[in-house]
């Protein structure tokens, strides 16, 4: 088992998340892609924490913080999606142009 394997998995997951973030039309799917990217970062931190810093494991502490912040982000993001859906009656990202120009 090597550090590089985990880092490659995390990189692939992050790229999948970026792809979903840019190409999705559904606003909820965009939030799911953001969660995937946060998970990729978590995996990076955990891999470094295990292989580079196995005594202090500060990476695990950071991962716990990121999990908490991801929970807050999901709650606020989904509330925003709900509010937009109520105003605009759609979840299509292409029609959310309130802050565009």
């Amino acid at each position: 088992m090597q550090l590089q394997y985990f880092l490659l998995i995390a990189a692939a997951l992050f790229c999948i998340g970026v792809f979903g973030l840019v190409t999705s039309r559904n606003a909820v799917r965009v939030l799911m892609s953001i969660e995937l990217m946060l998970n990729a970062v978590n995996l990076n931190l955990m891999a470094f924490s295990n292989y580079v810093d196995p005594k202090e494991i500060k990476g695990q502490v950071f991962t716990t913080f990121i999990i908490a912040i991801a929970a807050a982000e999901a709650a606020v993001g989904l509330a925003i999606v709900l509010a937009i859906y109520r105003n605009r009656d759609t979840v299509d990202m292409e029609q959310f142009n309130l802050l565009k120009w």
Binding site: L43, M46, N50, I57, Q60, T63, T64
Partner: peptide, 11 residues
């Protein structure tokens, strides 16, 4: 499961 492989049961 990957976290378990990385010796991190709490996370």
């Amino acid at each position: 499961g990957l976290y378990f492989l990385l010796n991190a049961d709490f996370v």
